[in-house]
Simulated scan of single mutants.
Amino acid sequence: MGVKTVLLVEDDELIGKLLVFILQRDGYQVEWLKDGQQAQELVLSGRDFSAVVLDLMLPFFDGLFLLELIRNQAAMASVPVLILTSKMGEEDIALALKKGADDYLVKPFQPPELSARLRRLIGKQG
């Protein structure tokens, strides 16, 4: 099996750079998009990803909109989605999981925990 590619949708420059570093260190290729509009275009293009790391608060389209879009695209419907956001309310977490998120991690996060959660999600794909 080839290198696994993670779609990262994160608008914060510093957090994005940190995430790219962590994901590349863990052996993933990373496609980093900084707003919901770019992410919408890529999701609709039918590209294949091993996982998605998705912030909820984004310019143009929010993460919940993108999550629903991902779940409604045949090419991406079964791709694991890890929500990584500063929204920590019970309602936010419950809604994201209800809409199809596979996991939910609140910022600030610990890099080893992010790595472990992503490994577990990608490993479940087979």
Rank of each mutant, 00 (worst) to 15 (best):
L8E: 02
G89M: 04
V30A: 10
R119S: 06
V106S: 03
R117I: 02
K87E: 10
F65W: 13
L8V: 09
L69A: 11
P112C: 03
R117P: 02
W32P: 01
R117H: 07
I70R: 09
I83F: 08
A39N: 04
R47F: 06
D103I: 06
G89F: 02
A39V: 08
L105Y: 10
I93G: 02
V20S: 08
D62L: 13
Q24R: 15
Q37F: 03
I93P: 00
Q110D: 13
L66V: 07
P80M: 05
L105S: 02
L95N: 14
Q40K: 15
F65G: 03
Q29A: 11
D12N: 15
F60S: 02
A51N: 05
V6A: 09
G63R: 09
D92F: 05
Q38E: 15
L97H: 09
A116Q: 12
L67M: 04
M88P: 00
A94I: 11
A94Y: 09
R47C: 10
E90R: 15
R25M: 13
P80N: 08
W32D: 01
P59M: 04
L18V: 14
K98A: 13
L97F: 10
A101L: 02
V53Q: 06
R119D: 06
D102S: 06
F109R: 03
S50W: 04
Q125D: 07
D26C: 12
F60R: 15
G126V: 11
M1C: 08
Q73Y: 08
D35S: 06
L69I: 03
R117V: 04
M88E: 15
E68R: 15
G100Y: 08
D48N: 10
Y28G: 03
Q24G: 14
I93C: 08
R25C: 03
L23Y: 14
L97Y: 02
D102Q: 06
